[in-house]
Simulated assay, not measured.
Amino acid sequence: MNPNKVFTVKRKFEYNVKISGGTKTCFINGICIMPSGRAIIVDSINTNVKLLDQQFKLVSHCDISGLLKGICLTTSSQVA
């Protein structure tokens, strides 16, 4: 990869990933796309991990204790 290459954003989309009834603003600092097309995102302000469907609609979430910094795919069905 050429470190001098400049990338241009061609399109921008915004999606609501707030949990129903939640009051805090989301701070997404990790995104991982699964082979199924679903996305898993890390919300460090609300200390949870969220599962989104292929249209990026919130499907489920899991509260996590501790500091959340990122996420990566480890197998076709697991993340770390």
Rank of each mutant, 00 (worst) to 15 (best):
M1T: 13
M1A: 13
N2W: 06
P3K: 11
P3I: 10
P3D: 02
P3G: 00
P3V: 09
N4V: 05
V6K: 12
V6T: 12
V6L: 11
T8Q: 15
V9E: 14
V9G: 07
K10N: 13
K10L: 12
F13A: 13
F13R: 15
E14Y: 05
E14P: 00
Y15V: 14
Y15G: 04
Y15W: 10
N16H: 12
K18E: 03
K18Y: 00
K18H: 05
T23P: 01
T23V: 12
T25I: 10
C26G: 02
G30D: 10
I31S: 01
M34P: 07
P35V: 05
S36C: 09
R38H: 14
R38M: 13
A39I: 08
I40L: 12
I40C: 09
I40E: 05
I40M: 07
I41P: 04
V42A: 08
D43P: 03
S44H: 08
S44L: 03
N46D: 15
T47A: 08
T47F: 10
T47V: 02
N48E: 11
V49Q: 00
L51P: 00
L51G: 08
L51H: 03
D53W: 10
D53A: 11
Q55M: 08
K57M: 12
L58R: 04
S60D: 15
S60N: 15
S60A: 15
S60K: 15
I64M: 10
S65M: 10
G66W: 02
G66M: 09
L68Y: 03
L68S: 02
K69M: 12
K69D: 12
G70L: 09
I71L: 05
I71P: 00
C72Q: 14
C72G: 05
C72L: 07
L73M: 09
T74W: 00
T74N: 07
S77W: 09
Q78Y: 03
V79I: 13
V79H: 04
